[in-house]
Design a protein around this nucleic acid. Structure first.
Lengths: 120, 120
DNA sequence: ATACCTGGTTACTAAAAGTAAACTGGTTGA
DNA sequence: TCAACCAGTTTACTTTTAGTAACCAGGTAT
């Protein structure tokens, strides 16, 4: 019976992971919330104040409206942004980053720095 | 002609984004390199030293071998990990994080902290 | 022989990402 | 009044990615 780097080999030579990420590890769970395509960008674009739906879609240029809607719904569900109908007739909706959403900005900034530093 | 939060409205009332992320902004580009499913986890699991293919697959428990192979190839292409055949007959392959790969650990740690702090 | 180990590949299905177009309803300008 | 835009979606559809399970070649241990 031996152990090396989190892998156990039993007396029959069978190997087993000691701490398998059976249920996804923190990094993976985090990526599922923030790693979806466009999610980071949306949060980043909301950091300076509320933005209306179409303005957001335009700034994200490259993401279709459907994608933007879909990501916004997910971010809303995760409590990172809120949707607010500002006026009916003519309809106007703004999306705002929540206080909780703002806690991700550190992380996004780290990513941005990394990308810029290494010319990704 | 007016400007508000990066959106220009021309004298005809047509709106345009001033700095659209026409080609994906840093956050988006970074996510395309690090945000794929399992990529972060793989880098994280390699941080303490070289790991063999099957050990990695076991530790990631939940990712199939095909997924692990595929992500490793992408990380290799991005210069974040290296593949090394350590012995032929019996075959043994180890994956190592590169110096460049190590520059992502800050970012991954920030993510991990965020997830743990907010019980994601 | 049998059953496991190694590091993959193959063939296939399910889920996610993506597009372009349509829709309801309102405003603007000629 | 009519066309041409605005708003914020939704629909129908295609493409890409993620995912599973089975298999393979070559080797070792019982």
């Amino acid at each position: 019976m031996s152990t090396f780097l989190g892998i156990t080999t039993d007396d029959q030579g069978r190997k087993h992971a000691m701490e398998p990420c059976l249920e996804p590890c923190p990094i993976e769970r985090g990526m599922r919330v923030l790693g979806g395509k466009w999610k980071g960008s949306i949060l980043w674009h909301l950091k300076d104040g509320p933005v209306r739906f179409n303005d957001l879609a335009r700034q994200l240029g490259g993401a279709s409206k459907k994608m933007v809607t879909q990501r916004l719904r997910e971010l809303e569900e995760a409590g990172l942004v809120t949707r607010e109908v500002v006026s009916d007739r003519p309809i106007a909706v703004v999306y705002k980053i929540t206080d909780f959403g703002k806690t991700t900005l550190d992380f996004l900034e780290t990513l941005k720095h990394w990308v810029e530093k290494h010319q990704i």
